[in-house]
């Protein structure tokens, strides 16, 4: 793959309540990357670091080969961001908010903005404080999608949006991708990503658990479902994550082929959905457990 459009090397940031420990991954142009992970894993901090809102303690972020720490302002002309709780100055018309925003972007596409506002059911004359969470997110999306941004950074844009609109939004986002653009999309609703995400990066406890293509992920990660007796005999060391109930256990493995061979006929072995991976991996890395790089 060509050198990645966005590259993050050894990004570290310490906060009183949690810490990002040396995060590294790359996002090539033309692809949509899903960023998933439990609450408090550091997703929002990571995205804010890309936008220069948070100053990392260590590590480097490069966009189109240029260092964001030094050329942040210039590069932000080509990066669009939608935060998880978009806020706007109250009592101002949406049209005014757009004009103020657009004046910073020479490549502003007014026609596209108007059509997006119509599609998203928003009236430019509305005052900003009358909008619900869903409407505020939609308006933030119209601003982000109406300029020639090469990187879209979206922090949980789908909370508060209904299933129909989410499906349309994902289709519309995928349609904007070409060999100059990429999308980084953080969400808790993994079903949205299952259809559309090319790459998936899982962040847990401030560290990258994996950053693969979704197909590689689906081919290598699996869930073994067996009886509790099986757990006694075979033990659970092969599993990355485990959940049990009175009637059986669900074990997460990152090598589904060998699991199929090992448990042939004795247990159910299925492909793991993104939600399975998140739920079975749990919130914090159990001490001393090595990661699948």
């Amino acid at each position: 793959m060509s050198s990645p459009l966005l590259r993050i090397d050894g990004l570290a940031k310490r906060f009183p309540e949690f810490e990002l420990k040396s995060v590294s991954f790359g996002l090539p142009a033309g692809l949509l990357m899903g960023l998933i992970g439990p609450n408090g894993a550091g997703k929002t901090t990571l995205l804010k670091a890309i936008l220069g809102l948070v100053k990392p303690d260590a590590g480097m972020i490069t966009f189109q080969g240029r260092d964001l720490a030094r050329e942040g302002a210039a590069l932000r002309a080509r990066i669009a961001y939608v935060s998880d709780e978009p806020k706007f100055m109250p009592g101002v018309r949406l049209r005014t908010l757009k004009e103020v925003h657009a004046s910073f972007f020479p490549a502003w596409d007014e026609a596209r903005w108007k059509s997006l506002m119509a599609d998203f059911g928003l009236d430019p004359q509305n005052k900003s404080d009358t909008l619900s969470l869903g409407q505020r997110t939609r308006f933030a999306l119209t601003l982000a999608l109406s300029r020639d941004a090469e990187l879209l950074v979206l922090d949980e844009p789908t909370t508060g949006l209904d299933p129909a609109f989410r499906r349309e939004l994902l289709a519309r986002l995928a349609a904007t991708l070409d060999d100059r653009r990429a999308i980084l999309f953080s969400t808790h609703i993994t079903s949205d990503l299952e259809v559309r995400a090319d790459l998936v990066t899982l962040l847990r406890d401030g560290e990258v658990v994996f950053s693969h293509s979704q197909d590689a992920l689906r081919d290598s990660w699996g869930v073994v479902k067996g009886g509790l007796d099986l757990l006694e005999t075979d033990g659970s060391n092969g599993f990355q994550g485990l959940r049990t109930n009175a009637h059986g256990f669900e074990g997460l493995t990152d090598d589904v082929e060998s699991a199929r061979r090992r448990y042939e006929g004795r247990a159910l072995v299925e492909r793991a959905s993104l939600e399975d991976i998140l739920v079975l991996l749990g919130r914090r890395r159990p001490e001393g457990k090595p990661h699948a790089a």
Partner: peptide, 9 residues
Amino acid sequence: SGLDPLMRR
């Protein structure tokens, strides 16, 4: 809304 899959479970 706002809860991760683990918390939803």
